[in-house]
Amino acid sequence: MDHEATTDEPQPDSVTDAPASATATATRELGEPLVELSGVNKHFGALHVLRDIDLTVRKGEVLVVIGPSGSGKSTLCRAINRLETIDDGTITIDGQPMPAEGKGLARLRADVGMVFQSFNLFAHKTVLDNVTLGPRKVRGLSKKAAEDQARTLLDRVGVGNQAHKMPAQLSGGQQQRVAIARALAMNPKVMLFDEPTSALDPEMVNEVLDVMVALAREGMTMIVVTHEMGFARKAADRVVFMADGLLVEQAHPEEFFTAPKSDRARDFLSKILTH
């Protein structure tokens, strides 16, 4: 909430002169480091999908990860709540290292919201039950409290009138907004978005992006893997460009899109922006 004023303020002057790592913090006041990756490596067989990744995301920061397919950006996102294991390196959430398994891992995952490309709503449960399941079974909320909270969240993402439908009866855009509400219901410290609009029909992309922009304005810490450059420009504090498992470049979105430093980024942007 307290970031709302600063987000809208364009600060181009301070951005262009400052070094890449400093620009992100220049746009708005960011808190303590919340998600920290250091020396993270991962192989899929012979393929080295994450190479020595060091990355820090601060409280309230909106980080957009872009890159060609196969660059490791989805793997990076999924590794943060350990849907993918890592070979070495450390990942900490709010100072706590991610446990390998068990109750500790489940507890930490509850604090990390995840939105998937394919929505993954629980297919046998109503929209309302999808949103109340975590709060009731993990957080121990009463049915009443969980449903009240769920209705507020569903209203907020604009699908309040769909509460009693099954996921299959909803459009893709509606399903993804329910998925965002389901993740928010856990009061997460950080939200991960793994290509949230890639499986959507074009006309439904904006309704999901609007919800995400609103979330960013409210000060939610977000890590977003996406190809939506409009979203990156509008809401991101920092853009990270990945290629071949490497974190190639990071910069303020405006700076990255107008004057990318690396050849790989220039090449990538020329392919996606020139048609």
């Binding site: 709540n81 849907l83 068990g102 109750k103 489940a106 507890r107 930490l108 995952r109 509850a110 604090d111 990390v112 919201g113 995840m114 998937f116 394919s118 993954n120 709503l121 629980f122 297919a123 399941l133 975590g134 079974k137 993990v138 998925a179 389901r182 993740a183 856990m186």
Partner: peptide, 13 residues
């Protein structure tokens, strides 16, 4: 498999 991932992602053991 996404159903299991979603369940794990909201913190269900």
């Amino acid at each position: 498999v996404g159903q299991a991932e979603a369940a794990r992602a909201i913190g269900l053991p």
